[in-house]
């Protein structure tokens, strides 16, 4: 009975989707009661970042290795706006996200002409340039010292308490997640999925594939920027770590851990990594990377579809029911085979 019910989760009828949404919102609502509030906010930020990254990797088949440029670039811009203008932090974060999107245009314009490893290397190269600028332009970015003392401005509300700030940051993240879901389920999203699976055929059908790729790249950068800006405000700090290549690597790990192309899996992956790192560091364990690296290897070897992907596969009836095409409602993207061609 229970197993049957759980199996039906995979099919996700309407009421089930509502249930999932309700569970998700409930978890988001109680998170800072269960966890140390700054860590809970970190989970939100990294979760949105990983989802934005999955938008590109899972739903357009583009593995960027330079997303730290957008996360970190936005962190700096957000910080500068908040420090020098005194505007509400929502405006600062939005400004940071817009800056990330603007930064993504030239990078994406050049990078989307290549795919696979070349795409990854080009994005990495640009991210390293951003790192260099952030390091050398110390009059603005603070160089090694970072941008310190970023305020949490919001007229009429005292956000100095991390607990309150979580609930102030939550709507931004939820809007970002809703936007990501909307993009994936839109006709536009179907085209990017088709580009992922067979770019040449999409071109033959008359779609300007590169323009689609550039658009999804920019959208991903914008959402990454939202996340990075919030992160900077949460910590009151933007540092070189935010534009470091290891940050680009971390988001790849989170997305792969959660399950490529599952969107919500990235949230789970991000939460798992942030929680694990926090738990290890408060336990006084120094070699955090060793453990997260080990977990990553195990997941990649044993659960190729990540935590979320594996969970939904196990809960799905076997053999998988043939997809019933519904002309009004496009098929659930979670059900499409993931990244058959990369």
């Amino acid at each position: 009975m229970i197993l049957g019910l759980m199996r039906r989760l995979g099919d996700r009828p309407a009421w089930m989707r509502w249930g999932l949404l309700a569970v998700g919102l409930a978890v988001a609502a109680i998170l800072p009661w269960v966890l140390y509030p700054p860590v809970a906010t970190d989970i939100l930020c990294w979760g949105l970042f990983a989802v934005a990254f999955d938008l590109l990797l899972g739903h357009a088949g583009l593995l960027s290795f330079g997303h730290a440029a957008f996360w970190g670039g936005s962190a700096y811009v957000t910080g500068l706006i908040a420090l020098h203008s005194g505007l509400p932090f929502y405006v600062a974060v939005l400004g940071g996200a817009v800056a990330a999107a603007v930064l993504a245009l030239p990078i994406g314009y050049l990078a989307v002409r290549r795919s696979g490893i070349y795409f990854a290397m080009i994005t990495l190269a640009f991210a390293q340039m951003v790192y260099f600028v952030a390091n050398q332009w110390s009059a603005v970015t603070g160089g090694e010292n970072g941008l310190q003392g970023i305020p949490r401005n919001l007229p009429g509300v005292d956000l100095s308490d991390a607990f309150t700030f979580y609930y102030a940051a939550l709507p931004v993240v939820l809007l970002g997640l809703a936007a990501a879901r909307r993009i994936v389920r839109s006709p536009f999203g179907r085209v990017t999925a088709a580009i992922r699976d067979n770019t040449d055929r999409v071109r033959a059908l008359g779609y300007p594939a590169d323009r689609y790729k550039l658009t999804v790249f920019t959208a991903s950068a914008f959402l990454s920027g939202l996340a990075g800006g919030l992160f900077a405000v949460n910590h009151g700090f933007a540092s070189l770590q935010e534009v470091d290549w290891t940050t680009s690597g971390k988001v790849v790990v989170m997305t792969v851990l959660g399950g490529i192309g599952t969107l919500w899996g990235s949230l789970v992956g991000a939460a798992a990594i942030v929680r694990l790192e926090d738990w290890l560091s408060t336990a006084g364990f120094e070699q955090t990377d060793l453990v997260t690296g080990g977990v990553f290897i195990v997941v990649v070897l044993l659960f190729r579809q990540g935590l979320w992907g594996t969970a939904t596969r196990l809960l799905r009836p076997r053999p998988p029911a043939p997809p019933t095409p519904d002309p009004a409602e496009p098929a659930d993207p979670d059900r499409t085979p993931h990244l058959t061609k990369r």
């Binding site: 919102l25 609502a29 991390a162 609930y167 939550l170």
Partner: peptide, 22 residues
């Protein structure tokens, strides 16, 4: 409708939790 409900839920939460914390 989904979005509306989500927004309402968040709004309520914000109001309810604003005064909490240690």
């Amino acid at each position: 409708l989904t979005m509306g409900v989500a927004a309402a839920a968040v709004g309520t939460l914000l109001a309810a939790c604003g005064a909490g914390g240690p």
